[in-house]
């Protein structure tokens, strides 16, 4: 469904992302993890068209979209959410979602009906006529998700959609994400909440300092010494190993 090849982004002298190659299979939930500052958000921005890569390619459904603008990629079926939520604060929840729904439903009646349907799906139905500015953090995260779903995407890019939620809010959100996948939408998610990564993802890619260092199932990743070192520092894997041997 999605492939990036040797994707690289330089900001001045900084290599935010350096030769990132990854592929996302249709129908999966694929995770993208990595320590803070690893370049995950930049990678997302290049996939969704918000940043132009210095070099490398992005291929979506077999077509090269590397230089295509963000709105055209959205029309192709790549939806994204923002790590820092961006609700249309002056509009109601329904109107917010409808902006997304208008992409496939030019008529207002259809767009509003679709918006209601999506609100139902993500659990925002009770707040549908409230202004978006009145939503809680959890509500705003759901709204980000709802708007992205309203464009009826093939691929959904979730940028830390669980960050800032408390454990019970996270528990409520997991089945929503699963239902999205079961509805036929492929998901690529950046996430720090490991509990979610472990329980949701089919495949996980690990990015550290702009470089892809590992990929595999969540279990494989959790045992991978390179990943442990990326998070906990050089030598950490050995020390853990030693500690386990002692125990």
């Amino acid at each position: 469904m999605l492939e990036t090849h040797a994707l690289t982004k330089h900001f001045g002298g900084l290599r935010a992302v350096d030769g990132a190659t990854l592929s996302v299979e249709a129908g999966t939930i694929t995770g993208l993890i990595g320590p803070n500052g690893a370049g995950k958000t930049t990678l997302f921005a290049m996939i969704s068209g918000f940043e132009e890569p210095t070099s490398g390619t992005v291929t979506f459904a077999g077509e090269d979209v590397t230089r295509e603008s963000a709105h055209k990629r959205a029309r192709r079926g790549i939806a994204r959410t923002f790590q820092i939520v961006r609700p249309f604060a002056g509009l109601t929840v329904r109107q917010n979602i409808a902006v997304g729904a208008y992409l496939r439903h030019p008529s207002r009646t259809d767009a509003l009906r679709k918006a209601e349907e999506v609100a139902q799906q993500v659990g925002l139905a009770p707040q549908i006529d409230r202004p978006a500015s009145e939503l809680t953090v959890a509500g705003r995260k759901r709204l980000e998700l709802a708007r992205a779903l309203a464009i009826e995407p093939k691929l959904l890019l979730l940028d830390e959609v669980l960050a800032g939620l408390n454990p019970s809010e996270i528990r409520d959100m997991l089945p929503v994400l699963r239902s999205v996948r079961d509805g036929g939408i492929t998901i690529l998610m950046v996430e720090h909440v490991m509990q979610a990564i472990m329980s949701l993802c089919d495949v996980v890619h690990v990015l550290a300092q702009g470089v892809m260092i590992a990929q595999g199932t969540p279990d494989e990743i959790a045992r991978d010494p390179r990943v442990i070192e990326a998070y906990l520092g050089a030598g950490a894997a050995k020390r853990l190993e030693a500690a386990r041997a002692h125990a």
């Binding site: 603008s69 963000a70 939806a79 902006v99």
Partner: peptide, 9 residues
Amino acid sequence: DAARALGVD
């Protein structure tokens, strides 16, 4: 930016 992400030109 949010508008662009939703396919608005």
